[in-house]
């Protein structure tokens, strides 16, 4: 975890998918050791922003880790720099066993250590030789996070870990994220579950249409009427 104490700075990030301008010039400042939330409606550009951080899409603008600009690094090299994306929509390898998924996550490591990850997700221990495609939704999401942790990341980029899960499991995932963060891993959390994200984040950005509409610490954002009406379903104060 070489980069642990370095902040990530994103400047004027823009992403095009052919004619679609998905991210239209955003600046992010991700503090080392923090949980930074990225919120927004469907299609706002959240996943695209995370993919750009991980090097999985072409972008313009610049991303730096500490003093080092990483724009030239291809996706598989960013993993070596400690940046790991846990993709949305259960991006696990369905045809492989739980163990093989974890091994794929540790692809860049010299030593493979399953035990610390299995301590966080004991349920996976009992399913270690099960085919991942046959896990329940919650177990698949845990496997996705566990697999990302296998490489000992410094920066974990989580894309909608709560998607499609029951409230009890969402609560569990929130606790896991806090636990991961307190072990020294910087977390960038993309979520549509605004209340969950704001309850654990240190700082949050709200994307609208590929641009940053709002940003601030959760306590301030929670006071904003826009947030309350648009993203928290107009719940009472």
């Amino acid at each position: 975890m070489a980069n642990n104490s370095k902040n990530i700075e994103v400047k004027n990030l823009q992403v095009w998918y052919g004619p679609v301008h998905a991210v239209k010039g955003i600046d992010l400042s991700i503090k080392a050791g923090s949980i930074t939330a990225v919120l927004g409606a469907n299609g706002a550009g959240k996943s695209t922003t995370l993919k750009a951080l991980a090097g999985g899409v072409k972008y313009t603008g610049s991303i730096s880790v500490g003093d080092e600009i990483i724009d030239a690094l291809p996706v598989h090299k960013r993993v070596q720099n400690g940046i790991v994306l846990c993709p949305e929509g259960r991006g696990i390898f369905y045809s492989m066993t739980v163990k093989e998924n974890l091994l794929a996550g540790a692809y860049r490591n010299k030593k493979v250590d399953y035990s610390s990850v299995l301590d966080i997700f004991p349920v996976l221990k009992d399913r270690i030789n099960q085919i991942a495609g046959t896990l329940s939704g919650g177990e698949q999401q845990m496997l996705a996070i566990a697999r990302a942790l296998m490489s000992n990341p410094s920066y974990l980029l989580l894309d909608e870990p709560s998607l499609g899960l029951a409230p009890v499991i969402i609560q569990k995932i929130a606790e896991v994220i806090k636990r991961i963060n307190s072990s020294g891993i910087t977390v960038v959390l993309v979520e549509q579950n605004t209340s969950l994200a704001l309850s654990i984040a240190n700082y949050a950005y709200v994307l609208e249409n590929g641009k940053i509409a709002l940003h601030g610490v959760p306590s301030d954002l929670l006071k904003s009427d826009v947030i309350r009406e648009k993203y928290l379903g107009g719940v009472a104060k």
Binding site: H76, V79, F93, S95, L103
Partner: peptide, 24 residues
């Protein structure tokens, strides 16, 4: 083998294999 697992990973989900640090 790790490289064998990488081959299966790429054949199932190429983009996600890249996020695992696999050189596709």
């Amino acid at each position: 083998t790790k490289f064998g697992i990488a081959v299966r990973a790429v054949s199932e989900k190429e983009d996600i294999a890249g996020y695992m640090g696999i050189n596709v």
